[in-house]
Structure formats: structure tokens, C-alpha cells
Design a protein around this nucleic acid. Structure first.
Length: 571
RNA sequence: GCGCCUAUAGCUCAAUCGGAUAGAGCAACGGAUUUCUAAUCCGUAGGUUGCAGGUUCGAUUCCUGCUAGGCGUGCCA
């Protein structure tokens, strides 16, 4: 609705500019793009465009004059949606829409229901979003939780605007880190059997979770693995450890409301032969050279400050090779676009991966990498909570949810955690205020939004009790919605589809979170100042019920995109 | 050293990819409850957008140089 209207207005202005040019009143080589922005204040109308300001130089006319010239060619009377066009400030063209447009918007929302906010702009293009992809060496940490929330929501957004997007998790189940996992489990296993003098190896995993895992093996199967030779035992423990931790991670994600469509194994990628094929390709293109017993990639030819090793002295691939192969594999699977979310510890990997993708000859804009920045847990005074009291112990996603759940229950714990992870731009550091998260009052944005939804629901509940049946929208006199607050609410509702599209395209999920908070911030005052149900004004009641339903619909749709529940009442 | 990110109200953050008077929430202060759920609302106060330049009709936004903080910078992933 908004979208079609915007393009309608765009066309109207474009035509007006062409006519002005044809009439010789405006001398510019071509009609430029016409940018629109929803206005900040109603005095500036509903939409505004600064297009005249940008033309001042080429047209050699003062911007106000240009705006006047353009507007003079618009047939306002011929467009029922437009009530008035003003020129204001230095030359802004402010478009005031007719009230009929507002009422039409309401009808659209109520009619479209769950699909309001969606569109088909993506035209079915296939997008793969890879996120979390934590090493299978331990429980998911807080940043992984943030990545999970952001990635999951972005996929929701992309699918809402017509893309065919999937969630993918890359399992680093090969290489040095999982080898270290096997060694660490081995140490814990032998310790559990009483062997003295053992220590977790350098670069190993000292967390308690492996102690428990090893104890389980001992309890179930005793010391039988001591008979295997060390290499065999470590490799067996590695594989069992991976399976165990992976299952744990999957369970944590599921608890957090995130389900991946595809899990890709690095081991499988290695076995596919693609790494070798890629190395051959690089060799053919003269990107490789031998030095110091290792094989190097000429990263410096791609603008990096140094080359990097792709085959180590011991003959093993460095992680670049399977990673490049994995991205080749993504491309071969036919994705039109791939979006990778990396944690803050992978920043160094970003430019290199771009370069490898370029070296593979894949399209420039095919891969998009974004960093999910770190999360700090803070108390009410903004003081940093110590997240790693001692080596090997860290604040996991599950521990966070456990703590929240103890205060506000499991369901809200997930809602609150998701919202807090989603409320900030993903490339900025995020302070997660634990005290605020468990506050069950308006300071907590999640409750504030959910309460707005609950109030809508409650109004319908009450109306049913009073025997008031909402009538079909077509039969309701929406013109009775005359309060400024009502118009403001509807205007806000009308922005939703464009916002969803923008958030998806810009990969900025936090905008939805803010929007919902703002919408709730308009509804609560309205609720307090104006009664929806009013026996004295039955027609107006019907109109306000439509408005209430529209608010509820947008809140529900928005929360659904964020993976946050919309409930009738508090548990 | 080099690279990436960040710097906006006392605190946490917005600002629709250069637009109009920079907005919310929290904290502070003062009010509202026989009412459709007070998990709410109304009001007051709070700013040289880190600093210095530059680009132009116009800069929180883009460029350069500083300053401060975070992260990265391995033949680990």
C-alpha cells in the first residue's frame, strides 16, 4: 500500500518534472531519482522529497523556485490520495495525503492480516545466510546467541520480502581445533580413571563440560578405551566429542528458537575433493608459491599486507583452503547471494575470504560478510560483569537463558534475550543489561511491546463480553477516526512494509525492534486517553476496533519476524 | 606498526545509506488509578554529535589528520 502509493507519487512528480522541462521552465539534462522520506513531523505532511534542493546547481535556480515549478505541474485535483502539496523550508516538497488514504491503509492491514508487511521484491532469489558456525569444541557463548538471533531474524526478513533464504551452520569438525578437543577429552578420561599428573594440552579445552562428558564415558563403558593406542583413542574421543557438543549446540539453539536448514560439515567438504581442485585452480592461476617448506597464497596481490600459508609444512591445509572450498560449494549450490555472519574474533578472516572468493572468480557482490560484535554483560549501573572468572569457564548462552528464566520464566527469557540481541546494530558492541532484562515493567522494552499487544487482545476480549461484535471492515465508518493520535498511529502502521523491506535489504534487524517499541509507544498513550469501547458511540467503537486490530496485526507480524512471542497475557 | 569497528543527553542507544527544530528509553524531579489489564500514562529538565580541518545550498552521516576505547593481526579455526 505505502509502497504502491510511494511509487504513485514518484510517478506523479516525475511526470511533473518532465512537463516542466518540456515547457522550458526547468533546464536539467535528465529527471533525477526522487528520494522520499517519511516526515518527522505532521506539519511536513506525510512524505517529503528534497529533490529540488539537489537540482539547484544544474538548473541554476534557487531550490524553492524549482520546487514551485515542479509542483505547478502537478494536478492535485486529479489525484484523490493527495490532499495538498506544500513547499517549505529551503525547498522541500511536502506531500500531504488525504484522510481517505489513512483509512485505506487500515483496511489493507486488516484485510492482509499475517501477510501485511510482506512483499515479493526478492523475486525468489536464493540467499544463503551462514551464522553462528561455532566450533564444536564447547557450549555456545553469548556472542553466538547474538549471532543466532540476528541471523535467524534476517532470514525471516528476507523471506518476508520475497527472497528464498535459508539458514546454514558450518561445522568445523576437522582440523587442529577438534584434534585438540580429542586430546582434551582423553586427558579428562584418564583423569577420571585416576591417572595422575595429566594436564590439558596447550590450546586445549579446560572447561568443566569435558570433565562431565569423560565421566559419562567412564560410567558407561569403564576403562576399555585405555587398551587402544593413544592416537586411535584421541581420534575416537574427538569424533564422539564433536557429536556430543554439536547435539548440545543444536539443543541450545532450538531452545533459543533457532532452527538451521542446513548443517554443512567441514570434514565432508574436505572429502569432496573441492579443496584439492581449488588449490589446482590457484596453482594454474599462479597464485601459489612454495617457501619455507610450506605453500603460500599471494594474498598481497589482492591488496593484503602479507601472503598466507595454505598448506602447512606438515602437509595439512590451513583453514583457508576448506573455507574457500566451502564457498565454492555454496556457489555451486546455486545461491544468488551468500551472507556470512562472523564473530568478532574472525575479523582478520574477512578480507582474506573476500580475496579467496575473488581468486575463485566468483562475482564481486555475491558474498557479503558482516561482523557480529561482542556482547558485554553489564549490571544496572553499566558495570561490566566478569565473564571469564577463570580459564575455561565462560558465560554460555544457556547460562544466560537459565538466569533470565529463573527470574521471568523460560518463555520470556528467550523473548527478552532475543530482543536485547536484536535491538542494536550488529556491528556495534552491545551492552546486555541483565538487571533491565528481568525487569517486568515499562523500562523493559520487550514487556512494553508485549503489553501493547496484550492490551489489544484484552479490548477484543472485553468487547465480546459486552456483546459487541466487530463488523467487517467494509461496513465500518473509518472516517470517525478523527483524533490526531489515531492518524499518527495509522501513519506509523503504514510505514511497516517499507521498513521490513529496508531492514532486509540493509541487513539491519534492529530497526524492526525499534519500530515496534515506537509503535507501542504510540498505542499506550492512545489507550490511556481514548476509550475504544464506548456504548455511547457505537459506530466510533467499531472504527476504533478496526484500528485496534490493525495495531495488533502489525505488532504480531513484527514480533514474529523477531521470533518473539505475542501473548494475550502474562504467564 | 598495520587493519576493522566504535565515539551522539549523566547511562544505554536511535536518527530510513547528505536533508528541515538530532530523537527514544533508563536514571532525576512533579503529577494521573471507582476506567478496555498501572507490565500504563501526562509533564519538566537534559546537547558545541570526541577534537581540528575539508567537500556544498545543507554534515551525526562523506573525506583527511589527530585523540580515546574495543577487536583482529599464527604453518589455530
Amino acid at each position: 500500500m505505502t509502497d504502491t502509493l510511494q511509487s504513485e507519487i514518484h510517478d506523479i512528480l516525475q511526470v511533473a518534472m518532465r512537463e516542466a522541462i518540456a515547457a522550458g521552465e526547468l533546464s536539467i539534462p535528465e529527471v533525477p531519482k526522487i528520494p522520499f522520506s517519511p516526515t518527522k513531523t505532521p506539519e511536513h505532511g506525510d512524505f517529503a522529497t528534497p529533490v529540488a534542493l539537489g537540482l539547484a546547481k544544474q538548473a541554476k535556480m534557487p531550490p524553492r523556485k524549482i520546487a514551485e515549478t515542479i509542483v505547478a505541474h502537478v494536478d492535485v485535483a486529479g489525484h484523490p490520495h493527495i490532499r495538498r502539496i506544500d513547499i517549505a523550508g529551503p525547498g522541500f516538497i511536502n506531500i500531504h495525503l488525504s484522510d481517505a488514504w489513512l483509512y485505506e491503509t487500515l483496511r489493507t492491514i486488516v484485510t492482509e492480516g499475517d501477510t501485511y508487511g510482506t512483499c515479493d521484491k526478492g523475486a525468489g532469489a536464493r540467499i544463503q545466510v551462514e551464522f553462528v558456525s561455532a566450533n564444536p569444541t564447547g557450549p555456545l557463548n553469548i556472542v553466538s546467541g547474538r549471532a543466532a538471533a540476528v541471523g535467524d531474524t534476517l532470514v525471516n526478513l528476507l523471506n518476508a520480502v520475497g527472497y528464498d533464504a535459508i539458514r546454514e551452520f558450518y561445522v568445523n569438525d576437522a582440523g587442529g581445533q577438534v584434534a585438540r578437543l580429542g586430546e582434551s577429552i582423553d586427558v579428562r578420561y584418564r583423569q577420571a580413571l585416576g591417572e595422575p599428573g595429566l594436564e590439558i594440552p596447550e590450546g586445549g579445552y579446560a572447561g568443566e563440560y569435558l570433565r562431565a562428558f569423560a565421566q559419562d564415558i567412564v560410567d558407561a563403558e569403564g576403562d576399555k578405551y585405555l587398551q587402544l593406542d593413544a592416537t586411535e583413542r584421541v581420534s575416537l574421543f574427538r569424533d564422539r566429542g564433536i557429536a556430543h557438543i554439536l547435539a548440545q549446540q543444536e539443543a541450545s539453539l532450538e531452545r533459543f528458537g533457532v532452527q538451521f536448514d542446513v548443517w554443512t560439515s567441514e570434514k565432508a567438504i574436505r572429502a569432496s575433493g573441492k579443496p584439492m581442485a581449488i588449490l589446482q585452480l590457484f596453482r594454474d592461476k599462479q597464485y601459489l608459491y612454495e617457501a619455507e617448506g610450506a605453500t603460500w597464497f599471494r594474498m598481497s596481490d589482492f591488496g593484503d599486507d602479507k601472503d598466507c600459508v595454505v598448506i602447512r609444512r606438515d602437509g595439512e591445509y590451513t583453514y583457508f583452503v576448506p573455507d574457500a572450498a566451502y564457498h565454492r560449494d555454496k556457489f555451486d549450490r546455486g545461491f544468488n547471494k551468500v551472507i556470512d555472519f562472523f564473530g568478532p574474533d574472525h575479523q582478520g578472516h574477512v578480507s582474506r575470504l573476500y580475496n579467496f572468493v575473488k581468486a575463485l572468480g566468483l562475482p564481486d557482490d555475491w558474498l557479503e560478510i558482516a561482523i557480529i560484535q561482542q556482547v558485554n554483560l553489564v549490571d544496572d549501573e553499566g558495570k561490566l560483569l566478569d565473564m571469564s572468572k577463570r580459564r575455561g569457564k565462560f558465560y554460555t548462552l544457556d547460562v544466560l537463558i537459565d538466569e533470565l528464566a529463573a527470574a521471568i520464566g523460560e518463555r520470556f527469557a528467550v523473548d527478552v534475550a532475543r530482543y536485547f540481541f536484536l535491538m542494536r546494530a550488529n556491528n556495534t558492541h552491545l551492552d546486555f543489561n541483565l538487571a533491565l532484562a528481568i525487569t517486568e515493567a515499562n523500562e523493559n522494552p520487550v514487556f512494553y511491546i508485549q503489553y501493547a499487544f496484550a492490551r489489544c487482545w484484552s479490548i477484543f476480549q472485553k468487547s465480546a463480553e459486552h456483546g459487541i461484535t466487530p463488523r467487517p471492515v467494509d461496513t465500518v465508518s473509518l472516517v470517525l477516526l478523527t483524533e490526531p493520535m489515531e492518524h499518527e498511529l495509522i501513519r506509523k502502521l503504514s510505514e511497516f512494509p517499507a521498513l521490513v523491506l529496508f531492514s532486509a535489504e540493509a541487513r539491519e534487524v534492529h530497526r524492526i525492534a525499534h519500530y515496534l517499541h515506537e509503535l507501542a509507544g504510540l498505542f499506550h498513550p492512545y489507550y490511556n486517553q481514548h476509550r475504544v469501547l464506548d456504548a455511547e458511540h457505537q459506530e466510533r467503537t467499531q472504527a476504533r476496533l478496526v484500528l485496534t486490530q490493525a495495531v495488533q496485526t502489525v505488532l504480531r507480524n513484527g514480533l514474529a519476524l523477531l521470533g518473539i512471542s505475542a501473548l494475550e497475557k502474562r504467564m
